Amino acid sequence: MTETAVLAAADALVEAFARHDRDAYFAAFAPDATFVFHNLDRRLDCRAAYEAEWALWETRDGFRVTGCRSTDRKVQLVGDVAIFTHAVETDLSFGGEAVTSNERETIVFSRGPEGRWVAVHEHLSAPT
């Protein structure tokens, strides 16, 4: 059941991202979640920092997510922590130009006292 719950939380996060649903996507992360992306020169130390970066991408670059597929999924459980890894193929638009990216991603989830799995760290890397 626990692995199923983690996969459901991951699916909800990926599905919100895939439809560019900012509110649902960011709601999947704890306020103090951290983010490491291969295309940024720094770590983002909280959800608000990532939200600000996302807004900048939208206004400066015409950023829009148009689709996302998750494959090669694995969940590792360590008490109230779950490590979710997968390959992710994302369809994006930058200024109206379509781009597809292929990356690997790790999302660390923590189970809160109410039993909800919330993302506390995301690490996105380019494939080798």
Rank of each mutant, 00 (worst) to 15 (best):
A9Y: 04
A9E: 09
A10T: 03
D11G: 08
A12T: 06
F17P: 12
A18Q: 09
D23T: 06
A24L: 06
F26E: 05
A27P: 05
A30P: 06
A30F: 02
P31W: 04
P31Q: 01
D32L: 01
A33M: 02
F35Y: 09
N39S: 08
R43F: 00
R43A: 04
L44G: 07
L44K: 05
R47A: 03
R47Y: 02
A48V: 00
A49M: 01
A55M: 11
L56Y: 10
W57M: 15
E58G: 09
T59L: 13
D61L: 14
D61T: 08
D61P: 14
V65P: 12
T66Y: 04
R69Q: 11
T71A: 10
R73W: 05
R73M: 05
R73F: 03
K74I: 04
V75E: 11
V75L: 12
Q76Y: 14
D80T: 15
I83G: 10
T85S: 11
A87M: 09
A87E: 14
E89N: 13
S93I: 00
A98F: 05
A98W: 01
A98C: 03
A98H: 09
T100N: 07
S101E: 14
T106D: 02
I107N: 02
F109K: 01
R111D: 03
R111K: 10
G112I: 01
A119E: 02
E122H: 03
E122D: 03
E122W: 01
H123P: 01
H123L: 01
L124S: 07
S125P: 03
A126T: 00
T128H: 00
